[in-house]
Amino acid sequence: MKRALAIVALLALTVLVLAGSRTVAPAPAQDEPRFAAYDVCIDSGSAPLAAWQVEIVASSGRAKLVGVEGGDAGAFAAPPYYDPKALMSERIVLAAFDTGSALPSGRTRVARLHVEVQGAAEPRFEARVVAAASRDGRTIDVSVEVRP
């Protein structure tokens, strides 16, 4: 009985060690990460977009955020505000505002996410608008989309 228990314990430890050691058992090629970029686009219709905040969550696939860049040239060309702690995680809140007069309307790329993708499956992102406002600070209805 004791011997059987010892064997089981040894097997369990071996599995743990093999699973935890990158040097002993390197990941197979298809599991190695690759990098992809996803555009965050906001459509504010005819209203000028002056401030926006969105929350984005990787809803499927194995993806980690590794970087955030700004959007199209103009009001939101600079990278938006985000919490650096969100990097290497699957959820991020982005926000930006501009008090200038050259504001975009319609569909605008406001940011670009750089993502480390693990595995063959393409990640999907769910985005929701937290807040958006036009030049005068009035709240406006906008839609957001995250796409490769």
Binding site: A27, P33, F35, G67, V68, E69, P79
Partner: peptide, 16 residues
């Protein structure tokens, strides 16, 4: 774990 160049990885870090 990198599959290619480190440049694509370092670039956003530098920018941030």
């Amino acid at each position: 774990v990198l599959t290619g160049s480190l440049r694509a990885y370092l670039r956003p870090i530098v920018r941030h």
